[in-house]
């Protein structure tokens, strides 16, 4: 495994200068052999009660990258992201085919504990879902259930800082999380996820329920967080993928014999390539707005 030298991953910016998000994202990506592979997905498929929702997906997810999954509704991108932390296992009748290697370890090996997986691979959901508890207890929930209760106050504060929420909530940590605005709730959910120090953060359309200002804040946060974390994001919004993602995977739908819809991976490449010179006609139709 090759570790990427600092100089090649961090864009050349002056400290304290707020670079334009697109410009920052548009840095040249490190060469393929210099990237560290976090997930190696090999021929992955998901079926619900025998119906294939997603078929034959193979791609690599790299460390400290933002990887976006885009595509029309029903293309299986949400189903796909939920494979990375065993969330599909909660749905009765769901079956996983193929393999996902996480640091060369089979994520669906027989001796793998979903709880251990979810400890390392956190998730932020489409709709902010704070627990009906105080702001503090929301962030402290993960560390508590995982037994990481030493220095809990500092841990909670650090997570809230990282999620750019500390200044807004530091005076009301004991207040109910349900009193926060939608954007604040979503950042709280991000803080909640960061508090257990995962390696990867999965974000399933994290901004689709938010207004444009709150969306911008979440996107800025993703730029910040990718220095320390690997981020996978599902999004409906192509501009968002273009703004935040280093790599983009485009998914689409094929119809089987009995009108059954199955998601497939069409193209996976650097974001700039996907949006400017896609190699597949279907990707081009989608990103230029002719389809979907």
């Amino acid at each position: 495994m090759v570790t990427v030298p600092e100089s090649q991953t961090v864009p050349v910016t002056l400290p304290g200068v707020n670079v334009d998000a697109v410009a920052e994202r548009g840095r040249p990506l490190p060469a393929r052999e210099l990237r560290e592979v976090v997930f190696d997905v090999q021929g992955l498929g998901v079926s619900y009660s025998g119906n294939m929702a997603l078929q034959d997906v193979s791609l690599e997810v790299y460390r400290n990258f933002v990887t976006a999954f885009i595509g029309p509704s029903g293309c299986g991108k949400s189903t796909f992201i939920r494979c990375f932390n065993h969330m599909n296992a909660l749905i009765p009748g769901a079956r996983i085919h193929g393999r996902i290697l996480y640091h060369e370890q089979d994520l669906y090996g027989t001796d793998v504990d979903p709880v251990e997986v979810r400890k390392r691979i956190g998730m932020v959901f489409q709709k902010p879902n704070p627990f009906p508890k105080s702001i503090y207890d929301n962030v402290a929930f993960g560390p508590r259930v995982l037994g990481m209760t030493d220095g809990l106050d500092e841990r909670v504060e650090r997570a809230l800082h990282q999620a750019a929420l500390w200044d807004e909530v530091k005076d009301r940590l004991k207040a109910s999380a349900l009193g926060l605005s939608g954007g604040q709730q979503q950042r709280l959910c991000i803080a909640r996820c960061l508090a257990v120090e995962p390696e990867v953060i999965l974000m399933d359309e994290p901004a689709s329920a938010l207004d444009p200002i709150a969306t911008t804040r979440i996107e800025d946060l993703m730029h910040e967080l990718k220095r320390d974390y690997t981020i996978i994001v599902v999004t409906h919004n192509m501009q968002q993928a273009a703004r935040v993602a280093d790599m983009t995977a485009f998914f689409s739908v094929t119809r089987g014999g009995e009108g059954q819809r199955t998601g497939i991976l069409i193209e996976y490449d650097a974001t700039d390539k996907i949006f400017t010179q896609p190699s597949d006609k279907r990707t081009e139709d989608y990103v230029t707005g002719r389809f979907g």
Binding site: L90, R118, F125, N129, G142, R192, C193, V196
Partner: peptide, 19 residues
């Protein structure tokens, strides 16, 4: 969504139900 949020943080079924 509450259950899913708790599971996603690494809680066991017992912890999700009880807490």
């Amino acid at each position: 969504s509450i259950r899913q949020g708790a599971y996603a943080l690494g809680a066991t079924r017992w912890q999700v139900v009880w807490r």
